[in-house]
Design a protein around this nucleic acid. Structure first.
Lengths: 196, 196
DNA sequence: AGGCCGGATGTACATTTGTACATCAAAACG
DNA sequence: CGTTTTGATGTACAAATGTACATCCGGCCT
C-alpha cells in the first residue's frame, strides 16, 4: 500500500495538468498521516510530503486544514463502512456468528489495524469538531444495522457495542488479545436460552 | 522544623516561594484543556492561562510538553479508576446489575462527561505514545476486575467491553442515548439462562 | 500561430509554539 | 543584617505552521 511514499516520485506525474485524482490522493495521504502519526500531526506540509505533491497543492485543493482533515476522515469512515458491508456479503447465512465476529475483530486489530486506528482518531476528533460527528455516527449505524440483520434489534445493538468495545480495548493492547478471549466474550454475550 | 511561622503568614501564600500544589494545579489545568478543547490544543500557554500561572511555570515544573501531557493524562486515568471503585463500594451487593451499570453509563455520559472525554482522548493519544499505554490499560483492567467481582471472569470481561462500547458510542451522540436503550443492551448481554 | 485562461505551484510572511536562560525574590543561614 | 541558595518568572528566539498570492505553464479558442 505504501508505494507512493514521501519524497518526489520520479515519475512525471505532473505532466497531467488536470489530475482529477489529485484531490483524492491528498486526502488519502492525510489518512495515512493520521494512521501513522495521529491527527495532531496532520499539517499541510506533512500531508504534501506524504502525497508527493507540492505544498501549494494542499492549500489549493482544500480551503483550510480543517477542511482537509474533515474530508479525509469522512472518506476513511465511508471506506470502512464499505469494507464492512463487503465482509457481510461474503458471510454465509448459516455461519457461526460468534466465530465470524471474532474473525472480524481480529482482522480489524491485525491486518486492518491502520484503518481501525484512523476510525478511532476520527471518533475522538469528533468530540471537539461537530462537523465530524455525522461521519463517526455513520460507522455506528452501519455496524448496528449490519448486526441487526443477523439477529434482532436489541441483540444487534448489543453486538455493535461489544464490537466497538473490543476494538477500543484491543487497539491499545500489545500484543492484541488472543482469539479465545475474543470469542469467549462474543459467546457469552450471545449466550443462548437454555433448552428444556 | 517549620518554626518560623511569624505573624502575618496565616494567609494564602500561593504566590509565595514554595507552593507544593503548583505542579498539580498545572496538571489539572492541562486536564481541563484536554476536556474542553482536545489533546492537540494542549500548549504551554493554554495550560498556563487555564491554571492562572505564568508561562515559565509550566516549563519549570515539567521538562517537556509531552511530560506534562503524560502526567496529566495518567493522573486523570487514576482519578477515574478511584471514582470507579468508590461507585462500587456504594453499590449494594444484591443490586440489579443491569440497572446499576446503566446508571453508571449515564453518569459517565452526563454529569461526568468531561471525565469521560478525557479518558477517550487518553485512549487515542496512547495509540501513538507508548508512554501512555499503561495508563489507558489500567482503566480497562480496573473495569474488568470490578465487573468480574460481581459475576465471573468471562462475564466481567464481557461487561467491561460493553461498558467501553457504550461510552464510546454514547459520548459522540447528541443527545445521549435514552436510559431504556442502554438498559436493554445490558439486559440482553446478561440474558439469564432460562430455567427449565 | 499567437494570445488568453485558469488550474497548479513556489514562495513569502505573520503567527504560534516549544524551550532555554538570565533574572528575580523570598527563605535559609550565618 | 548580609550572604547564599534555590524555586520561580519574564523574556527572547528559533523552528514550525497556516495561509495568501504572485507567478507559471499547458491547453484552448480564434
Amino acid at each position: 500500500m505504501s508505494v507512493t511514499e514521501s519524497a518526489a516520485v520520479g515519475k512525471d506525474v505532473r505532466s497531467s495538468r488536470r489530475d482529477p485524482t489529485r484531490r483524492e490522493r491528498i486526502a488519502r495521504a492525510a489518512i495515512t498521516v493520521v494512521a501513522e502519526r495521529g491527527v495532531d500531526k496532520v499539517t499541510h506540509r506533512a500531508v504534501a510530503a506524504q502525497a508527493g505533491v507540492p505544498l501549494g497543492s494542499t492549500t489549493y485543493h482544500f480551503s483550510t486544514l480543517d477542511d482537509l482533515l474533515a474530508v479525509a476522515l469522512q472518506q476513511a469512515a465511508q471506506d470502512n463502512v464499505v469494507q464492512l458491508r463487503q465482509w457481510a456479503e461474503g458471510l454465509p447465512a448459516n455461519a457461526d456468528l460468534a466465530a465470524a465476529l471474532t474473525d472480524l475483530v481480529l482482522e480489524f486489530l491485525g491486518p486492518e489495524r491502520a484503518r481501525t486506528v484512523v476510525e478511532h482518531e476520527l471518533y475522538v476528533a469528533a468530540l471537539h469538531r461537530p462537523a465530524l460527528q455525522q461521519a463517526s455516527t455513520e460507522w455506528d449505524v452501519a455496524l448496528m444495522e449490519l448486526f441487526t440483520s443477523y439477529t434482532d434489534s436489541v441483540t444487534g445493538r448489543m453486538l455493535s457495542t461489544v464490537f466497538c468495545g473490543l476494538l477500543l480495548q484491543g487497539i491499545v493492547r500489545d500484543p492484541i488479545p488472543p482469539r479465545d478471549e475474543v470469542e469467549a466474550i462474543f459467546r457469552r454475550a450471545l449466550r443462548p436460552v437454555a433448552e428444556g
